[in-house]
Simulated assay, not measured.
Amino acid sequence: MTLRTAFCDLVGIDFPVVQAPIGGPSRPALAAAVSNAGGLGVQAVSWDRPDQLERRLAKTQGLTSKPFGINVVLEWPQHDRVAQCLAAGVRVISTFWGDPAPYTEMIHQAGAVHIHTVGSAAEARDAVTAGVDVIVAQGWEAGGHVRGEVSTLALVPAVVDAVAPVPVLAAGGIADGRGVAAVLALGADAAWIGTRFLLADEATTGPTYRDALINAAETDTAHGIVFDKGWPNAPHRTLRNSTVRAWQAAGRPEPGQRPGENDVVGTWLDGQDVPRYADLAPLAGVTGDTEAMALYAGQGTGLLRETQPAAQIVEEIVEHCQARLTRW
């Protein structure tokens, strides 16, 4: 059984599996491994300096000849980064958290595909009207920063109906082949999977973060505005760690009044202090009380069992999805 969809044909991949950008843990080795396995690897580049971005793109292109994508958050101007990626030959540009309209023309002029993440059918219609080629319907179950408040099961078919025949990718709570089969049945063209790939060998997820993901149940995440230093007023889903529990026990106070507001909980890779409530997830090499940092994760975390090579994750997801669809 083939799993190839219209989206696969559009971007040149074999399987409807997209590795979500997952912020800091997403690096060239991860994106390249996913792309080499037949999916689409995507990297978060919203805060890269031009020299960092140049090295990132060159390294990725040295590891794969397959398509890969980049993601930028539109809370901040991203024209220069998008232009640099397009000039380097990237042909899949993903945008999030803002108006995609100012970016569609430059993306299309370069012959690239524009993907935009939304949290509602209305937002999806606006994005398509602006010229976006592919929509990611992000359910409330998703880890990291979450755009809307609707579950994946309810959101995906609503968005599919709203923007057909534009391809729709489903995000939020999808961590295995059963989830991919489910969203394909809902009308999605592919699954946008983040939390599962945090446990890829190639991800730079810190060891305490990995252990917490493996040991967490599906009930162990919290949604709200907690880790907001660096990105204010942006709801997100993380594991319920010591910082989140203390904040909840205090009655969920506003920023500036939270427990340990002025604490420094660790040291970043460049030697900078990491304050409590920073929006930084602990990467390998970050030191300090990393358990207290932002452990972004979706509700699919209860399905995580072990660290694996990214290619094995893709293979396993595809195999289990095919088996489920064949059974149906």
Rank of each mutant, 00 (worst) to 15 (best):
A58V: 12
G12M: 07
I93G: 02
F7R: 07
S46P: 02
P28D: 03
K66R: 15
V92W: 05
R91Q: 13
V18Y: 06
R56H: 12
G23S: 14
R91K: 07
V42N: 03
D14P: 09
R56V: 14
P50I: 01
L10E: 08
P21M: 05
Q78G: 03
V34P: 11
A101W: 08
A37S: 12
L10Q: 10
E75S: 13
L74M: 08
G23P: 06
A31T: 00
D48W: 09
T60C: 11
N71P: 14
T64W: 04
S65R: 10
I93V: 05
A33I: 00
Q61A: 13
D14Q: 12
G24I: 15
W47M: 14
S46K: 06
P28K: 01
L30C: 04
S35P: 00
A20K: 05
W47F: 15
Q78V: 15
G38E: 02
P25T: 05
V92C: 04
L86G: 03
C85T: 01
F68S: 04
Q43M: 11
D51K: 13
L53I: 07
E54T: 09
A37D: 08
L63Y: 08
V82D: 02
T64K: 08
G24T: 15
N71H: 11
D51Q: 14
A33L: 02
I70A: 09
V73F: 06
T64F: 01
A58L: 13
Q78P: 02
D14S: 12
G98K: 04
G89H: 06
G41W: 05
P16R: 01
